[in-house]
Amino acid sequence: MTTIAPEEPALEAVFDATVAADERIEPRDWMPDAYRSTLVRQIAQHAHSEIIGMQPEANWITRAPSLRRKAILMAKVQDEAGHGLYLYSAAETLGTSRDELLDKLHTGRQKYSSIFNYPTLTWADVGAIGWLVDGAAITNQVPLCRCSYGPYARAMVRICKEESFHQRQGYELLMALSRGTEAQHAMAQDAVNRWWWPSLMMFGPPDDESAHSAQSMAWKIKRHSNDELRQRFVDICVPQAEALGLTLPDPDLTWNEERGHFDFGPIDWAEFWDVLKGNGPCNEQRISRRRRAHEDGAWVREAAAAHAAKHGKADR
Protein backbone atom coordinates (compact mmCIF):
# COMPACT_ATOMS: atom_id res chain seq x y z
CA MET A 1 0.00 0.00 0.00
CA THR A 2 1.34 3.41 -0.84
CA THR A 3 0.57 6.43 1.24
CA ILE A 4 0.36 9.87 -0.20
CA ALA A 5 3.10 12.10 1.14
CA PRO A 6 1.56 14.80 3.29
CA GLU A 7 1.84 18.36 2.10
CA GLU A 8 4.78 19.14 4.34
CA PRO A 9 5.24 22.82 3.53
CA ALA A 10 1.55 23.45 4.26
CA LEU A 11 1.72 21.47 7.50
CA GLU A 12 4.87 23.26 8.53
CA ALA A 13 3.17 26.59 7.91
CA VAL A 14 0.32 25.59 10.23
CA PHE A 15 2.84 24.47 12.86
CA ASP A 16 4.83 27.71 12.58
CA ALA A 17 1.67 29.81 12.80
CA THR A 18 0.50 27.91 15.90
CA VAL A 19 3.83 28.46 17.64
CA ALA A 20 3.98 32.11 16.53
CA ALA A 21 0.48 32.72 17.92
CA ASP A 22 1.68 31.32 21.27
CA GLU A 23 -0.78 28.47 21.04
CA ARG A 24 0.17 24.96 22.09
CA ILE A 25 1.18 22.06 19.88
CA GLU A 26 -0.74 18.92 20.89
CA PRO A 27 0.29 15.26 20.49
CA ARG A 28 -1.39 14.44 17.19
CA ASP A 29 -0.58 17.72 15.45
CA TRP A 30 1.97 17.55 12.67
CA MET A 31 5.35 18.70 13.93
CA PRO A 32 8.85 18.80 12.43
CA ASP A 33 10.86 15.64 13.19
CA ALA A 34 13.56 17.71 14.86
CA TYR A 35 10.99 19.38 17.15
CA ARG A 36 9.75 15.94 18.17
CA SER A 37 13.23 14.53 18.80
CA THR A 38 14.33 17.64 20.69
CA LEU A 39 11.32 17.33 22.98
CA VAL A 40 11.82 13.61 23.54
CA ARG A 41 15.45 14.23 24.44
CA GLN A 42 14.66 17.10 26.79
CA ILE A 43 11.59 15.59 28.49
CA ALA A 44 13.30 12.21 28.88
CA GLN A 45 16.36 13.83 30.42
CA HIS A 46 14.09 15.76 32.72
CA ALA A 47 12.14 12.64 33.74
CA HIS A 48 15.33 10.66 34.33
CA SER A 49 16.64 13.51 36.51
CA GLU A 50 13.57 13.29 38.75
CA ILE A 51 13.98 9.52 39.12
CA ILE A 52 17.75 9.53 39.69
CA GLY A 53 17.31 12.58 41.93
CA MET A 54 15.48 10.37 44.44
CA GLN A 55 18.74 8.61 45.33
CA PRO A 56 20.88 11.35 46.92
CA GLU A 57 18.01 12.36 49.21
CA ALA A 58 16.75 8.86 49.95
CA ASN A 59 20.23 8.34 51.35
CA TRP A 60 19.15 10.35 54.41
CA ILE A 61 15.60 9.09 55.03
CA THR A 62 16.65 6.52 57.63
CA ARG A 63 18.93 9.05 59.34
CA ALA A 64 16.65 12.09 59.43
CA PRO A 65 17.05 13.77 62.82
CA SER A 66 13.34 13.79 63.73
CA LEU A 67 10.08 12.16 62.75
CA ARG A 68 8.93 15.49 61.30
CA ARG A 69 11.98 15.73 59.05
CA LYS A 70 11.66 12.09 58.05
CA ALA A 71 8.00 12.47 57.03
CA ILE A 72 8.88 15.60 55.02
CA LEU A 73 11.78 13.92 53.26
CA MET A 74 9.70 10.86 52.37
CA ALA A 75 6.97 13.09 50.93
CA LYS A 76 9.56 14.98 48.91
CA VAL A 77 11.19 11.84 47.50
CA GLN A 78 7.72 10.51 46.65
CA ASP A 79 7.01 13.77 44.81
CA GLU A 80 10.17 13.29 42.74
CA ALA A 81 8.87 9.88 41.65
CA GLY A 82 5.57 11.52 40.74
CA HIS A 83 7.33 14.21 38.73
CA GLY A 84 9.23 11.54 36.83
CA LEU A 85 5.95 9.80 36.00
CA TYR A 86 4.23 13.00 34.78
CA LEU A 87 7.21 13.61 32.51
CA TYR A 88 7.48 10.05 31.19
CA SER A 89 3.79 10.30 30.25
CA ALA A 90 4.45 13.57 28.44
CA ALA A 91 7.37 12.01 26.54
CA GLU A 92 5.21 9.02 25.58
CA THR A 93 2.73 11.29 23.80
CA LEU A 94 5.55 11.92 21.29
CA GLY A 95 5.63 8.30 20.19
CA THR A 96 8.25 6.80 22.46
CA SER A 97 7.44 4.15 25.08
CA ARG A 98 8.13 3.84 28.80
CA ASP A 99 10.24 0.72 28.30
CA GLU A 100 12.31 2.44 25.64
CA LEU A 101 12.89 5.47 27.87
CA LEU A 102 13.96 3.35 30.85
CA ASP A 103 16.17 1.24 28.63
CA LYS A 104 17.93 4.34 27.32
CA LEU A 105 18.49 5.58 30.87
CA HIS A 106 19.86 2.24 32.00
CA THR A 107 22.23 1.97 29.04
CA GLY A 108 23.42 5.57 29.24
CA ARG A 109 21.94 6.60 25.88
CA GLN A 110 19.87 9.32 27.53
CA LYS A 111 21.24 11.57 30.23
CA TYR A 112 20.02 13.01 33.50
CA SER A 113 21.09 16.20 35.22
CA SER A 114 24.74 16.11 36.28
CA ILE A 115 23.89 17.57 39.67
CA PHE A 116 22.73 14.16 40.91
CA ASN A 117 26.20 12.73 40.45
CA TYR A 118 27.37 14.58 43.53
CA PRO A 119 27.18 12.80 46.92
CA THR A 120 25.07 13.82 49.94
CA LEU A 121 27.71 13.67 52.65
CA THR A 122 25.83 15.22 55.58
CA TRP A 123 22.27 15.94 56.71
CA ALA A 124 22.80 19.58 55.72
CA ASP A 125 23.09 18.44 52.10
CA VAL A 126 19.36 17.64 52.19
CA GLY A 127 18.78 21.30 53.01
CA ALA A 128 21.23 22.57 50.38
CA ILE A 129 19.58 20.39 47.73
CA GLY A 130 16.15 21.75 48.60
CA TRP A 131 17.27 25.37 48.66
CA LEU A 132 19.80 25.45 45.82
CA VAL A 133 19.19 22.46 43.57
CA ASP A 134 15.39 22.68 43.70
CA GLY A 135 15.67 26.46 43.60
CA ALA A 136 17.69 26.28 40.39
CA ALA A 137 15.23 23.73 39.02
CA ILE A 138 12.30 26.04 39.76
CA THR A 139 14.04 28.95 38.04
CA ASN A 140 14.51 26.71 35.01
CA GLN A 141 11.06 25.18 35.13
CA VAL A 142 8.69 28.08 35.69
CA PRO A 143 9.18 29.31 32.09
CA LEU A 144 8.61 25.72 30.87
CA CYS A 145 4.99 26.02 32.05
CA ARG A 146 4.58 28.11 28.87
CA CYS A 147 6.47 25.68 26.63
CA SER A 148 4.93 25.32 23.16
CA TYR A 149 4.29 21.58 23.62
CA GLY A 150 1.02 21.14 25.55
CA PRO A 151 1.64 17.92 27.50
CA TYR A 152 5.09 19.10 28.66
CA ALA A 153 3.74 22.50 29.72
CA ARG A 154 0.88 20.86 31.65
CA ALA A 155 3.27 18.50 33.44
CA MET A 156 5.43 21.46 34.38
CA VAL A 157 2.48 23.33 35.91
CA ARG A 158 1.89 20.42 38.29
CA ILE A 159 5.58 20.05 39.04
CA CYS A 160 6.17 23.73 39.77
CA LYS A 161 3.28 23.80 42.22
CA GLU A 162 4.86 20.93 44.14
CA GLU A 163 8.48 22.11 43.92
CA SER A 164 7.75 25.13 46.05
CA PHE A 165 7.38 22.90 49.12
CA HIS A 166 10.69 21.24 48.26
CA GLN A 167 12.57 24.50 48.21
CA ARG A 168 11.00 25.87 51.37
CA GLN A 169 11.63 22.73 53.43
CA GLY A 170 15.29 22.86 52.41
CA TYR A 171 15.60 26.50 53.34
CA GLU A 172 13.92 25.91 56.70
CA LEU A 173 16.23 22.97 57.38
CA LEU A 174 19.33 25.07 56.65
CA MET A 175 17.94 27.88 58.79
CA ALA A 176 17.60 25.50 61.74
CA LEU A 177 21.20 24.35 61.32
CA SER A 178 22.55 27.83 60.73
CA ARG A 179 20.96 29.06 63.95
CA GLY A 180 22.02 25.92 65.84
CA THR A 181 25.31 25.03 67.46
CA GLU A 182 28.61 26.07 65.98
CA ALA A 183 29.10 22.59 64.54
CA GLN A 184 25.62 22.65 62.98
CA HIS A 185 26.27 26.06 61.47
CA ALA A 186 29.57 24.84 60.03
CA MET A 187 27.82 21.79 58.58
CA ALA A 188 25.28 24.03 56.83
CA GLN A 189 28.02 26.28 55.46
CA ASP A 190 29.98 23.28 54.19
CA ALA A 191 26.94 21.96 52.35
CA VAL A 192 26.29 25.33 50.70
CA ASN A 193 29.97 25.55 49.74
CA ARG A 194 29.79 22.20 47.96
CA TRP A 195 26.40 22.66 46.25
CA TRP A 196 26.65 26.28 45.09
CA TRP A 197 28.79 25.84 41.97
CA PRO A 198 27.17 22.61 40.76
CA SER A 199 23.79 24.38 41.16
CA LEU A 200 24.95 27.19 38.85
CA MET A 201 26.02 24.55 36.32
CA MET A 202 22.46 23.18 36.28
CA PHE A 203 21.48 25.99 33.89
CA GLY A 204 23.71 24.43 31.25
CA PRO A 205 26.68 25.75 29.32
CA PRO A 206 27.06 29.46 28.50
CA ASP A 207 24.81 30.68 25.70
CA ASP A 208 27.53 30.76 23.07
CA GLU A 209 28.39 27.11 23.74
CA SER A 210 24.88 25.71 24.14
CA ALA A 211 24.21 23.36 21.23
CA HIS A 212 20.41 23.39 21.16
CA SER A 213 19.47 26.73 22.68
CA ALA A 214 18.80 28.89 19.61
CA GLN A 215 16.49 26.37 17.92
CA SER A 216 14.66 25.61 21.18
CA MET A 217 14.04 29.30 21.73
CA ALA A 218 12.70 29.67 18.17
CA TRP A 219 10.31 26.78 18.83
CA LYS A 220 9.33 28.30 22.18
CA ILE A 221 10.32 25.13 24.00
CA LYS A 222 12.73 27.35 25.87
CA ARG A 223 11.83 30.92 26.78
CA HIS A 224 15.05 32.29 28.31
CA SER A 225 18.72 31.63 27.71
CA ASN A 226 20.91 29.61 30.10
CA ASP A 227 22.90 32.67 31.17
CA GLU A 228 19.78 34.75 31.70
CA LEU A 229 18.26 32.13 34.04
CA ARG A 230 21.58 31.60 35.83
CA GLN A 231 21.81 35.34 36.52
CA ARG A 232 18.22 35.38 37.78
CA PHE A 233 19.04 32.54 40.18
CA VAL A 234 22.19 34.24 41.53
CA ASP A 235 20.26 37.46 42.13
CA ILE A 236 17.57 35.57 44.04
CA CYS A 237 20.03 33.57 46.15
CA VAL A 238 22.29 36.32 47.47
CA PRO A 239 19.75 37.92 49.83
CA GLN A 240 18.41 34.47 50.77
CA ALA A 241 21.92 33.39 51.83
CA GLU A 242 22.24 36.56 53.85
CA ALA A 243 18.98 35.81 55.68
CA LEU A 244 20.30 32.33 56.41
CA GLY A 245 23.45 33.76 57.93
CA LEU A 246 25.53 31.75 55.45
CA THR A 247 27.93 32.86 52.73
CA LEU A 248 28.16 31.81 49.10
CA PRO A 249 31.61 30.46 48.16
CA ASP A 250 32.47 33.08 45.54
CA PRO A 251 34.90 35.94 46.33
CA ASP A 252 33.88 37.70 43.10
CA LEU A 253 30.23 37.97 44.06
CA THR A 254 29.48 41.70 44.05
CA TRP A 255 26.54 43.93 43.22
CA ASN A 256 26.95 45.66 39.87
CA GLU A 257 25.00 48.90 40.02
CA GLU A 258 25.29 49.48 36.29
CA ARG A 259 23.89 46.09 35.28
CA GLY A 260 21.45 45.90 38.14
CA HIS A 261 22.66 42.36 38.81
CA PHE A 262 25.23 40.52 40.90
CA ASP A 263 28.51 39.78 39.16
CA PHE A 264 29.86 36.34 39.92
CA GLY A 265 33.11 34.45 39.38
CA PRO A 266 33.97 32.04 36.55
CA ILE A 267 32.35 28.62 36.54
CA ASP A 268 34.61 25.58 36.22
CA TRP A 269 33.16 24.20 33.00
CA ALA A 270 35.87 21.57 32.79
CA GLU A 271 34.30 19.99 35.90
CA PHE A 272 30.84 20.19 34.32
CA TRP A 273 31.90 18.40 31.13
CA ASP A 274 33.87 15.84 33.11
CA VAL A 275 30.88 14.92 35.30
CA LEU A 276 28.67 14.85 32.20
CA LYS A 277 31.08 12.39 30.59
CA GLY A 278 30.57 10.04 33.53
CA ASN A 279 33.49 10.95 35.77
CA GLY A 280 31.55 12.55 38.64
CA PRO A 281 31.80 11.13 42.15
CA CYS A 282 28.57 9.08 41.91
CA ASN A 283 27.77 8.46 38.20
CA GLU A 284 28.49 4.77 38.43
CA GLN A 285 26.58 4.25 41.69
CA ARG A 286 23.46 6.15 40.54
CA ILE A 287 23.02 4.12 37.37
CA SER A 288 23.89 0.75 38.84
CA ARG A 289 21.43 1.28 41.72
CA ARG A 290 18.76 2.35 39.25
CA ARG A 291 19.36 -0.73 37.09
CA ARG A 292 19.28 -3.02 40.09
CA ALA A 293 16.04 -1.50 41.39
CA HIS A 294 14.46 -2.05 37.97
CA GLU A 295 15.67 -5.65 37.80
CA ASP A 296 14.60 -6.35 41.39
CA GLY A 297 11.11 -5.08 40.53
CA ALA A 298 10.71 -7.32 37.48
CA TRP A 299 8.88 -10.07 39.39
CA VAL A 300 6.35 -7.54 40.72
CA ARG A 301 5.60 -6.25 37.23
CA GLU A 302 5.29 -9.78 35.90
CA ALA A 303 3.08 -10.96 38.77
CA ALA A 304 0.75 -7.97 38.40
CA ALA A 305 0.50 -8.55 34.66
CA ALA A 306 -0.23 -12.26 35.21
CA HIS A 307 -2.89 -11.42 37.80
CA ALA A 308 -4.48 -8.93 35.42
CA ALA A 309 -4.45 -11.43 32.56
CA LYS A 310 -6.05 -14.16 34.69
CA HIS A 311 -8.80 -11.93 36.08
CA GLY A 312 -9.33 -10.24 32.74
CA LYS A 313 -10.20 -13.68 31.32
CA ALA A 314 -12.43 -14.60 34.27
CA ASP A 315 -14.47 -11.43 33.85
CA ARG A 316 -15.43 -12.30 30.28
Binding site: E26, P27, R28, T93, G95, T96, S97
Partner: peptide, 12 residues
Protein backbone atom coordinates in the same frame (compact mmCIF):
# COMPACT_ATOMS: atom_id res chain seq x y z
CA UNK B 1 -6.83 8.59 21.19
CA UNK B 2 -5.55 12.06 21.71
CA UNK B 3 -2.60 11.57 23.99
CA UNK B 4 -1.43 8.04 23.38
CA UNK B 5 1.84 7.04 21.77
CA UNK B 6 2.22 6.16 18.12
CA UNK B 7 4.11 2.98 18.95
CA UNK B 8 1.83 -0.03 18.45
CA UNK B 9 1.14 -2.16 21.54
CA UNK B 10 2.61 -5.21 19.84
CA UNK B 11 6.01 -3.51 19.84
CA UNK B 12 5.90 -3.25 23.64
Amino acid sequence: PADTPAVPAAAR
